[in-house]
């Protein structure tokens, strides 16, 4: 479904602080599977995920997304594809403070030009799925860690993406919440989503739902598991 061909990413090219974060990664990722990227800090997991998620353009190499070549697309089109295909869950969850949970969930859909009320209804339904619709109108800074996490997942789902990308989703969670997170992941997998996770948390990569683990080291794929 997603195919990476010899992806390289160099930061600050041509300057003294030039740094090559990804050095030729070729991969193919199947649909409806849970794939975990594992590797030491600084190995390039986040960079790779943001390249796969069309957030960053690689310096060279090609990405095929459902047989469409996306690497040479300008940002305008890349974003168009990204917001229909990918839902992101960030390490810090990155909710916007000062507005309600509901608004946070609806935010990714605003520029898509959807009418407000149908969108709101869908957002409430998504929150309902995670049993937090009673918190819809609370400001996000008052929510507990677990609630915040579920809001973040609801936000990733609002545009009905086929791929969910999560970067270190359990880093700030205790064991109980981490288990809860993995349960949600398995539920999403059941719904047919493709899931990519970067993590070095054993609780994640040793979980039963994980189909495949990819080891990353120094910006390269180290071994197949």
């Amino acid at each position: 479904m997603i195919e990476l061909i010899n992806i390289k990413k160099t930061f600050n090219a041509g300057r003294p602080n030039e740094f090559s974060a990804i050095n030729g990664v070729s991969l193919s990722i199947e649909a409806n599977k849970v794939t975990v990227f594992k590797g030491p800090s600084g190995s390039g997991k986040t960079t790779l995920l943001s390249i796969i998620g069309c957030m960053t353009r690689p310096t060279s190499g090609r990405i095929m997304l459902a047989d469409r070549e996306v690497t040479s697309l300008p940002e305008r089109f890349l974003t168009g594809i990204r917001r229909k295909t990918f839902g992101f869950i960030f390490q810090q969850f990155n909710l916007i403070k000062g507005i309600t949970a509901l608004e946070n969930v609806m935010l990714p859909a605003y520029p898509m030009g959807e009418a407000y009320y149908p969108l709101k209804k869908r957002a409430l339904e998504t929150l309902d799925m995670f049993n937090i619709s009673n918190k819809a109108l609370s400001k996000v800074e008052w929510l507990s860690g677990g609630e915040t996490q579920r809001i973040a997942i609801a936000r990733a789902l609002i545009n009905i993406p086929s791929v969910i990308i999560a970067d270190e989703p359990t880093a700030h969670l205790d064991t109980k919440l981490s288990h809860e997170f993995m349960d949600i992941i398995s539920m999403l997998k059941g719904e047919g989503k493709t899931i990519l996770i970067a993590s070095h948390d054993p609780l994640v990569y040793e979980s039963d739902v994980v189909d495949r683990i990819i080891n990353i080291r120094d910006g390269m794929v180290a071994e197949w598991v």
């Binding site: 940002e75 305008r76 974003t79 990204r82 917001r83 990155n94 916007i96 935010l107 990714p108």
Partner: peptide, 16 residues
């Protein structure tokens, strides 16, 4: 800055 970064990360385009 962070807020705009978040907006862009969750799918807002520069022109949005």
């Amino acid at each position: 800055k962070k807020e705009i970064g978040i907006l862009k990360a969750i799918g807002w385009e520069t022109s949005d």
